[in-house]
Lab assay of single mutants.
Amino acid sequence: THFTSQQLQELEATFQRNHYPDMSTREEIAVWTNLTEARVRVWFKNRRAKWR
């Protein structure tokens, strides 16, 4: 999946605040970024792996 810079900005900003967002937070992010909750969940999983 290719993310727009706007989507990445929103995802990264949320990641800085919370590395493990809950389901409702992921659903909110999905609405803001026009992505599915599953895409958001996978992005956070991959981002945490990169962060370690």
Rank of each mutant, 00 (worst) to 15 (best):
T1H: 12
T1M: 13
T1G: 13
T1Y: 13
T1S: 10
H2W: 12
H2S: 12
H2T: 10
H2D: 11
H2C: 14
F3L: 14
F3G: 02
F3S: 02
F3C: 05
F3R: 03
F3H: 04
T4Q: 04
T4S: 09
T4F: 04
T4D: 06
T4E: 04
T4H: 04
T4M: 04
T4L: 05
T4P: 03
S5G: 08
S5W: 14
S5Y: 13
S5N: 11
S5R: 13
S5P: 13
S5M: 12
Q6R: 11
Q6C: 12
Q6W: 15
Q6G: 08
Q6F: 14
Q7V: 09
Q7G: 03
Q7L: 06
Q7M: 07
Q7Y: 04
Q7N: 04
L8V: 08
L8H: 07
L8N: 06
L8P: 01
L8I: 11
L8Y: 07
L8S: 06
L8G: 02
Q9R: 12
Q9H: 11
Q9P: 01
Q9M: 13
Q9A: 13
Q9L: 12
Q9E: 11
Q9K: 12
E10T: 14
E10F: 15
E10H: 14
E10P: 01
E10M: 15
E10N: 09
E10D: 11
L11P: 01
L11F: 02
L11D: 01
E12L: 04
E12W: 05
E12N: 04
E12C: 05
E12R: 02
E12G: 00
E12T: 02
E12V: 04
E12I: 05
E12K: 03
E12Y: 04
E12F: 04
A13L: 10
A13G: 06
A13T: 08
A13H: 09
A13F: 10
T14P: 01
T14K: 10
T14C: 15
T14W: 15
T14D: 03
T14Y: 15
T14A: 15
F15H: 01
F15P: 00
F15T: 03
F15G: 02
F15A: 03
F15Y: 07
F15W: 07
F15S: 00
F15M: 00
F15K: 01
Q16E: 08
Q16F: 07
Q16W: 10
R17V: 10
R17Y: 08
R17M: 11
R17G: 07
R17L: 11
N18Y: 06
N18V: 07
N18F: 06
N18P: 01
N18C: 14
N18Q: 06
N18T: 08
H19V: 04
H19P: 14
H19Y: 05
H19A: 08
H19K: 14
H19N: 05
H19F: 06
H19L: 03
H19I: 05
H19S: 05
H19E: 03
Y20V: 04
Y20R: 05
Y20L: 03
Y20Q: 03
Y20G: 01
Y20M: 05
P21K: 01
P21F: 03
P21D: 01
P21C: 05
D22A: 07
D22Y: 03
D22T: 10
D22F: 02
D22Q: 04
M23E: 08
M23Q: 12
M23W: 10
M23P: 06
M23N: 06
M23V: 08
M23H: 12
M23K: 15
S24W: 08
S24A: 14
S24K: 15
S24R: 14
S24V: 13
S24Q: 14
S24H: 12
T25Q: 14
T25V: 08
T25S: 08
T25G: 05
T25W: 06
T25R: 09
T25K: 09
T25F: 07
R26K: 02
R26M: 10
R26N: 02
R26E: 01
R26D: 02
R26W: 05
R26S: 02
R26T: 04
E27M: 15
E27G: 06
E27I: 15
E27K: 15
E27W: 09
E28S: 10
E28D: 09
E28N: 09
E28F: 08
E28L: 14
E28Y: 09
E28R: 13
I29S: 00
I29A: 01
I29T: 02
I29F: 03
I29Y: 02
I29H: 00
I29G: 01
I29N: 01
A30V: 02
A30R: 01
A30G: 07
A30S: 05
V31W: 09
V31P: 00
V31I: 13
V31G: 10
V31F: 13
V31R: 15
V31M: 13
V31H: 13
V31E: 13
W32K: 15
W32N: 15
W32F: 14
W32Q: 15
W32R: 15
W32P: 02
W32A: 15
W32S: 15
T33F: 13
T33I: 13
T33Y: 09
T33Q: 07
T33G: 03
T33C: 12
N34V: 05
N34M: 08
N34S: 08
L35Q: 07
L35G: 03
L35Y: 02
L35W: 06
L35D: 02
L35C: 07
L35S: 13
T36I: 05
T36A: 05
T36C: 06
T36R: 01
T36H: 03
T36K: 03
E37V: 06
E37G: 03
E37N: 04
E37H: 04
E37L: 05
E37A: 06
E37Y: 03
E37T: 05
A38Y: 14
A38I: 12
A38W: 13
A38D: 10
A38C: 10
A38L: 14
R39P: 01
R39V: 15
V40G: 00
V40Y: 01
V40Q: 00
V40F: 01
V40D: 00
V40T: 00
R41A: 10
R41H: 07
R41F: 06
R41W: 06
R41I: 05
R41Y: 07
V42I: 14
V42M: 13
V42S: 12
V42G: 09
V42Q: 14
W43S: 02
W43K: 00
W43M: 00
W43F: 03
W43D: 00
F44N: 00
F44Q: 00
F44C: 00
F44G: 00
F44W: 03
K45I: 14
K45V: 12
K45R: 12
K45M: 11
K45N: 07
K45H: 10
K45A: 11
N46G: 07
N46T: 09
N46P: 00
N46I: 12
N46Y: 13
R47W: 04
R47L: 04
R47E: 04
R47M: 05
R47N: 00
R48M: 05
R48C: 02
R48P: 00
R48L: 07
R48K: 02
R48H: 05
A49I: 09
A49C: 10
A49L: 09
A49D: 09
A49P: 02
K50D: 07
K50Y: 08
K50R: 12
K50M: 11
K50A: 12
K50I: 13
W51F: 11
W51I: 09
W51N: 07
W51L: 11
W51E: 13
W51Q: 08
R52G: 07
R52E: 08
R52M: 09
R52N: 08
R52V: 08
R52H: 10
R52P: 05
